[in-house]
Design a protein around this nucleic acid. Sequence first.
DNA 1: GTCTATAATTCGATAGAC
DNA 2: GTCTATCGAATTATAGAC
Lengths: 187, 187
Amino acid sequence: MESADKPRRSDATRAAILTAARERFAADGYERATIRAIAADASIDPAMVMRYFGNKEKLFAAAAEFNLRLPDLSDVPAEQIGVVLATHFVERWEGDDTLRALLRAAVTHPVAAERMRQLFAEQLGPVAARLAPTDAAARAGLVATQTLGLALTRYVLELPPVVAMDRGAIIKWLAPTLQRYLTAPSP
Amino acid sequence: MESADKPRRSDATRAAILTAARERFAADGYERATIRAIAADASIDPAMVMRYFGNKEKLFAAAAEFNLRLPDLSDVPAEQIGVVLATHFVERWEGDDTLRALLRAAVTHPVAAERMRQLFAEQLGPVAARLAPTDAAARAGLVATQTLGLALTRYVLELPPVVAMDRGAIIKWLAPTLQRYLTAPSP
DNA sequence: GTCTATAATTCGATAGAC
DNA sequence: GTCTATCGAATTATAGAC
């Protein structure tokens, strides 16, 4: 929208604000994350945050801009879709505050919740539709229950046994679940 | 602590406050749920809420007091544990604001999160321990990922396809997942 | 027990000097 | 572009009259 032309001098400042905002939103949720704290983290004046992003809602919208980055799955054999998806999700969540910020905010912030709904409908829906033409929506929803449940318990609630599991174990346990939700006959 | 003796006159007021508090905490989360709004819902003065519960934290603690109410599962055959658990959880979540209030608050409120951790450790842990002595904790954690994931997507985020599913379908889809997490050999 | 008044904070947002 | 000063609103919590 605005980034096509010349890279502005202030882009570094902008990026610093966004990074700090993502960390705060991810750690504290929408209402506890204050503009003052975000500005302090970015070593900048709070008024600058307002100048750059207008208000808190727009700042959040910019900070939580992201997608699932699902790879092209059209070449993946149907019987391997579970492993591929489980692997992708586990690695996608780690090391990026954006998704945690969105999840935490979505619980109390209607706009964030709506974006979460869009995200799974638009990006996971098509995958399910290719594998199961009839009840694709329900199957995509089931995949969401398991993947978001993992994210919730591991990164937000931090249930000790879920935190303790390594990535490999998680993938091995979850892959058959996702596989069944997407390709098994309706029970 | 205080309820053993005589039922006080003010117990009705107390109960009204708690009911309103649960609804507000469940609908708005911890920080957006205000004492003023709770008092208004209960048709009472805000100052009374403070008098009865001291402060907001204690009010929440009282309102979110609950347990999973897991039935006695020692008589359930190991191969039916999935169906029994899935059925119980689906019916436990519906029609009771308490658990939704706790889940929503736990995402941003550390005390609520700690209670959520205790809840699953103390009540789900033993069930897993009986079925799988070695890696019981991990299996209980996996069950938590799926059951809390369902609660999150259906009652909090309200993903349309998850909301649209009826209880029977949910149970049929989730039961094999829970069954495998608890009784299948480690992958 | 009940309610009014208000203290004490905190936060988002704005105005304006430099 | 950057920062100071501050407004206005909302909230928890308290003090005290009745």
